[in-house]
Design a protein around this nucleic acid. Structure first.
Lengths: 345, 345
DNA sequence: TTGTATGCGTTATCAG
DNA sequence: CTGATAACGCATACAA
């Protein structure tokens, strides 16, 4: 007992018409008589006819679906982005296929190939923190395949890009710590391969120097997996706390870095902000519960998803290739919890 | 400048062969000479030939993709399930398409229709908390379309079902509170339409009566949206705290109920467990950070995903219809934090 | 206004 | 061993 779908042929046979007539009637073509249209429409309704999108895709050489590649959907930042993507995509009749790299370059390559071979019409990509070699994406892009990068973008490819002003986010976060009285601010950063990491560190450095503090590489620690693994964060923080002049504050520049940093501080029974100042990048809606004194940099995730998708679909649907690619920079938001100033202790 | 894929035809033309020969060579058919095979394989490799899955789908009447319907991917329980689903699906060559209902019945119906019309081979469903009418799923199921329910299942449909032992989870959670010295335990429950809610409440009730406490409906509050909206939880808890005999403990029977309950208690400056005992269902990996004294019921989410997907794919790939459907019940895990006993105060 | 034929990319069937 | 042809479901150019 297998599921057999109704086709245009069945309708044609039942009504004594040709398939083309039925096809045209269903598409409400002007060349079909009202009478025939009514007949066809009524009958299709009755037997619950559903056009086969696969046949359509084959014919039209488009699948009306777009692929998304992110590191992890179980990350509030990315799941919010996905909600933004969906809202636009579904609105415009596109389906969405999500693949996770889990921060692994190999999985990213496999996913890209998999999605491309599944005949998606375009790709929304935020690269993994391991990614350096880009040939898996370049080869697609060179063949004119629509790709839009968001958040974790790639300099060497000419495409639409949607990012957050990471420099600004980190600058303001660092400055907030300085204004709160901290003198020795360390940076807990993600993979050094990522654009976002570099930009955030620049903001951090600039804020320090603008405020008369010295930038010292010893106070910058990278976590290749963006803090996904607790051990990474633990090692980094252990090293920071071993420095002759211990940091009195930390800026954690990613979602998981922030939560795992909190976990570490808690384990070591270090209180925020009494023992250690902290500002973290985080889109988790629970930060107020996690720590009463945690100021966070919040990213406009939903908007990133919306904007990226609009650009991608625009590119997909433009007949001639797009010549100039946009680079959209959205502002982050620094949410300050008052109790996080050092004076308030 | 449009992306033009290489087809079997191009290879045939270039090599002076017929398409059927090329097709067979690519599939390593025994009827093709080693020489020809080598030729074809080498050339396809060179020009990076990728078979068109859409043409394949049309021919084979299967898309090798399965649909997932959940309420929310930004919920650790469901994102863990999705990881489990992916791991099996990709392993078996299936693609996964995720749709979110956001706890809305209307969106669920739209998504089911959308996915079904996208020619997926099967559907993994966890219904929304609003869902009562099942005709959108029944009509598919009646036509022999493979559906597997997980977690939030539906009694009236004969399909594979994968669930957690909700009775047990709630029973043990409630008993833990009782053993910890609480006498007046309230239940913060999800939508009353959901199977999981009913089962959890049964476990709660049984634990009470087994331990000589009375079950009183006034101490049970439902949140239609499963705690997704803070207001829901706030209203429910406000009502509970207005009772002449206030509850001294709460069992929160879903992820979002737990976190929003914590948020409420914090707002009201009620400490756990001093002012209020609490055990929550939660798959969030941050519960230890959220509250130092929060025991949680953890669900085997990844496993749910794996098992459901195995069942679904088995059903998809079985030629004859499946006659007896399995109902798999996985055990939850009660994670006890020692400081949560009332005596420890 | 309607019908016939063709093609999208692939595989299966039947001939050679 | 290899090639020609039909078929999957649909839309459309071309005929009638």
């Amino acid at each position: 007992m297998k599921f057999e779908a109704v086709t245009i042929k069945d309708i044609a046979k039942a009504l004594g018409l040709s398939t083309s007539t039925v096809s045209r009637a269903l598409r409400d073509s002007y060349e079909i008589s009202p009478e025939t249209k009514r007949l066809v429409l009524e009958y299709s309704e009755k037997i619950n006819y559903q056009p086969n999108p696969i046949a359509l895709s084959l014919k039209e050489k488009r699948s009306r679906s777009i692929g998304i590649i992110v590191c992890e959907i179980a990350n509030s930042f990315f799941s919010q982005i996905i909600n933004g993507i969906e809202s636009i995509a579904y609105d415009k009749g596109y389906n969405v296929i999500i693949a996770q790299s889990h921060e692994s370059y190999d999985r990213e390559v496999i996913n890209v190939q998999y999605l491309a071979s599944r005949s998606i019409d375009g790709l929304l990509v935020s690269v993994s923190s391991e990614t350096q070699d880009l040939k898996h994406l370049k080869s697609l892009h060179e063949r004119g395949f629509p790709i839009v990068f968001f958040d974790r973008i790639v300099d060497e490819m000419e495409t639409h890009k949607v990012i957050v002003d990471n420099f600004k986010g980190a600058y303001e976060a660092t400055e907030h710590l300085i204004k709160s009285g901290y003198k020795q601010i360390a940076a807990l950063a993600g993979s050094e391969y990522l654009s976002i990491t570099k930009e955030r560190l620049k903001g951090y450095e600039q804020a320090l120097t603008d405020n008369g503090l010295v930038y010292d590489e010893a106070y910058v620690k990278h976590c290749l997996h963006g803090g996904m693994l607790y051990n990474e964060v633990e090692n980094a923080l252990n090293q920071l706390l071993k420095l002759k002049k211990k940091p009195d504050a930390i800026i954690a520049s990613a979602d998981k870095l922030t939560t795992n940093c909190l976990r570490y501080l808690k384990k070591r029974k270090l209180k925020v902000p009494d023992d250690m100042g902290l500002v973290g990048f985080s889109n988790l809606d629970l930060t107020d519960l996690l720590s009463p004194s945690l100021s966070v940099v919040r990213q406009p995730a939903f908007e990133i998803g919306e904007v990226s998708t609009e650009l991608l679909i625009k590119q997909i649907e433009s007949k001639r290739g797009i010549t100039d690619f946009e680079r959209i920079v959205l502002p982050p938001q620094l949410l300050i919890r008052e109790s996080s100033t050092k004076e308030s202790v």
